[in-house]
Design a binder for these strands. Structure first.
Lengths: 364, 364
DNA sequence: CGGTTGGATCAAATCGATTCGATACTCGTC
DNA sequence: GACGAGTATCGAATCGATTTGATCCAACCG
């Protein structure tokens, strides 16, 4: 016995399909007794309400917002900032009755292919369809930037799916949500400079998607692809701090920060301060310092960026720059709302705030 | 100028709509030259491929797997286990060409309503539609259990959406993915008992959705609603350890562990070991102990559960029980595959493994 | 050379709703 | 009692594809 359809309900209630539709959607005039009769018939037949697929086709709306997670998907979930932004986004959109569809960014992003064994008897380039190109969605949100030449982006624009870009490079025609991170780093730089630090090292986010890690030489420094990394370094210089060493990590994770910290602190000319481009990395640096027997902030000042919860550092409070993660999610929600209403959303840039903790002090 | 449809492409290529469809879907015989002509026409018209909504309606498949996050959505994202399970799930499903739709659990779960100001002029119970009941999906995955009487579950079964239950109470007709956590705790108990611990406290996950926290008295201990909590406590007893005190937290987060640790360690009759029901909580306990000047494992042994990455503890390696998170995600993926193929998936229970780290030792 | 087979193509039905425009009816007014 | 306004209902068109069953034709077989 197949599921009943709206037509069945209408027949059983003795009304036309259109009237039955009105009873559920509420769009249009309908007499209260009629409405009740329809709903009663529906209950009788165990009808679960209008089939979403039918509704979606007719109305042209899927009620779905696709979220493209930049880079290797698996890693995005381990980056606290990405997770918290997603968090804010999901709650905001849920209130609008919109669902969030998670989409791994396709191959076009330059993400390395997953290291699954390739069976030679399988059809070459097996038809794993690119979800970004085939899934139904009303709006797409790009989290953590993508390449404008991205395969996914091209597919989306061809399909007329509007795109909202969070923390990515400006792309023509896309609304953008970003933060004033240049200014944040300028403030951090000024803070460190005023404390008297001159030998400062930086730990940065990945320059590109190659997932390289280690100290960046002059050549590598010229190859920074991600705007965000360059902008933050520039901000630091604006604040009066020119890093003597720059360490690039492959992922913004605590482990990577530990690794970076150990390298930078064991080398010659130990820096008196380390500026990390994320709190996760900074936490790693703090841990590395402790393990090497260095006192923070006595022997080493450390700064982060983001303002995420870092309960694991105990009493230690990281000096960092707080960015409004929840507000970013909410802003995206408002943009989606605007786009669905047919208007053009305006891009926003949030200000950030310096928070001085217990990890910075004058050098010894 | 509206987007072209398959009919436009067919007309332009001089073939019928059905043939054009075949050119894209590959289901059915089609001559290579014809296929190329259709694709060329599509490229010419800037056609982005078959509209997913049309395809979905006709085929009755949405290609979407809904994931119901138990409890308050916002918190799920902060619980590492939930995030990592989700992570594995998304990657597995992506390979099957399926998208993951995140659904906040509805009001039926007993989650407290979001504390938004209620405008009195707004219509009462404003029609925020329950996504679980209205969104298109082929299969639903329940992460972290829900009440069988759940509003969402009822709606799903009415719609004939099959449900896969991860770490939840067994519900008739649902396939289940779970782990042998009772055995894991029995092993932990045996380990501690063999070391000679007799005064052991436990820090548990929430008993229900009331988000209570604090030391549970006898009455409260009789009200444990979540199977998982009870089962783990029972396992511990099987292993030969009967906790002298049980502390219930509201969320499985490091902060909560710190709080629990401070309370348990400052009271009279300080325990010589603390068994936490998650690694996040255990990490909090370790931090609390350190802040109180206690040596781990010298003054206090601590155990966790889950086996997640805990880079913030530095050199310290938590004694814990490792559960196969990635495999759980993959198992769900296989179940979804089976359900879509029309077969009945079998429930699985994964074994867990005791990992002895540097946080347990004989009591002083 | 007639009959059979099978590949390629097509026309039409179908999925389950929403929505437009028309119709029927009620009520109030002049 | 006729007319206009407004409300409730309905029939039919529509959204954009997939899929079924029929048709056509060339190749192959005996």
């Amino acid at each position: 016995m197949a599921r009943p359809t709206l037509a069945d309900v209408a027949r059983s209630a003795g009304v036309s399909v259109s009237t039955a539709s009105l009873a559920f959607s509420g769009a249009g005039p309908i007499a209260e007794p009629t409405r009740e009769r329809v709903l009663a018939a529906a209950a009788e037949l165990d009808y679960a309400g209008p089939n979403p697929l039918g509704r979606q086709l007719r109305s042209g709306r899927s009620g779905i917002v696709g979220v493209l997670l930049g880079g290797v998907l698996g890693r995005s979930f381990r980056e606290p900032v990405a997770v918290q932004t997603l968090d804010g986004l999901v709650s905001t959109l849920a209130e609008l009755g919109l669902g969030v569809l998670l989409l791994p960014a396709g191959r076009g992003t330059g993400a390395p292919p997953p290291p699954t064994e390739t069976r030679t008897d399988a059809p070459a380039a097996a038809a794993v369809p690119n979800l970004a190109a085939t899934a139904a969605m009303d709006v797409a949100v790009l989290l953590w930037g993508a390449n404008p030449a991205d395969e996914d982006l091209i597919a989306l624009s061809r399909r007329d799916v509007p795109v909202i870009n969070v923390e990515g490079p400006a792309i023509a025609g896309n609304a953008t949500v970003s933060i004033n991170d240049r200014d944040g780093f300028a403030q951090l730089g000024a803070h460190l400079a005023s404390l008297g630090h001159t030998r400062v090292a930086a730990v940065t986010l990945p320059f590109d998607r190659s997932r390289t890690s280690g100290i960046a030489d002059a050549e590598r420094l010229g190859q920074i692809k991600l705007d965000i990394v360059r902008r933050r370094l520039e901000g630091l210089r604006e604040g009066g701090v020119d890093p003597v060493t720059v360490y690039e990590v492959a992922y913004s994770q605590v482990e990577q920060g530990v690794e970076a910290g150990k390298t930078l602190l064991s080398g010659p000319d130990r820096p008196t301060a380390i500026v990390a481009q994320s709190d996760a990395l900074a936490a790693g640096v703090v841990i590395a310092a402790r393990e090497l027997g260095l006192d923070v902030p006595g022997d080493l000042s450390v700064t982060g960026f983001d303002g995420i919860d870092l309960p694991w550092l105990g009493e230690t409070v990281l000096t960092t720059v707080v960015q409004p993660l929840a507000e970013k999610g909410a802003a995206v929600g408002r943009m989606v709302e605007a786009l669905l209403a047919g208007s053009e959303p305006e891009s926003v840039t949030f200000d950030v705030e310096l928070r001085i903790g217990t990890t910075t002090a004058p050098p010894r």
